[in-house]
């Protein structure tokens, strides 16, 4: 299963220190894992929530440095795309997988898949035994929808104000964190629903 999906910055942000990342959207699936760990049993709900937020932030920072290192190594100049060129932007995106050891930060080992599109990254944290080919396809699909529907290649802030669209998208393509084997017909059906949701 997928543990969380996030959209975050990988470019320097004026108010943040180097190496820090601004999380624009994050969704953790399932119960808070602190509820089941002996180590965190005594925590208050507020502390558990905070712990979960910090875990997500750790992932964002690690992905940010992974993307930067990968870009530095490849030496390719960064392509600038404008709204309407979502497919091209995705094609040009850097991507990779990263191992998150048990306890760093989740209690079990996880794999983080990331897709770096210009100054933003889309990241999927899934259980280590997951089918990563399927996860990668799902991540690309999710990213494409987000880019298109929230006009993310432009200057707007829709990802912040219309995050419910991402929620609705996840509810269909990745329900409760479950990766689905969807052929193009199933996917088309869902896409119609997603588009209908966004047009409201």
């Amino acid at each position: 299963m997928v543990r969380c999906f996030l959209i975050h910055t990988i470019c320097p942000v004026s108010n943040l220190g180097p190496g820090e990342s601004r999380i624009l959207y994050s969704r953790v699936f399932g119960p808070n894992e602190a509820t089941f760990s002996a180590q965190h049993r005594g925590l208050s709900p507020e502390e558990k929530r905070l712990l979960q937020k910090e875990k997500v932030a750790v992932v964002a920072r690690q992905v940010q440095s992974a993307v930067c290192l990968s870009r530095e190594a490849s030496g390719r100049p960064l392509m600038e795309s404008v709204p309407g060129e979502e497919a091209l932007a995705l094609q040009e995106a850097d991507s990779g997988a990263m191992r998150l050891r048990a306890g760093e930060p989740f209690s079990e080992e996880m794999s983080a898949l990331w897709l770096g599109v210009q100054s933003l990254a889309f990241t999927l944290v899934c259980e280590a035994h997951e089918n990563l080919l399927l996860a990668e396809g799902t991540l690309r699909n999710l990213s494409r929808h987000c880019l298109e529907q929230l006009h993310m290649l432009g200057q707007g802030s829709e990802v912040l104000l219309k995050s419910d669209r991402v929620d609705a998208l996840l509810g269909r393509v990745l329900p409760h964190g479950q990766l689905l084997f969807l052929n193009h017909r199933f996917a088309q059906g869902l896409e119609k629903e997603v588009a209908a949701y966004a047009s409201k």
Binding site: T9, C11, V13, S14, N15, R22, L24, V117, Q118, S119, L120, M152, L153, G154, Q155, G156, S157, V159, L160, L161
Partner: peptide, 12 residues
């Protein structure tokens, strides 16, 4: 992609 506008929205 990530604009000054978004940053100021978060600050607000």
């Amino acid at each position: 992609m990530y604009s000054q506008g978004s940053e100021s929205l978060i600050r607000q």
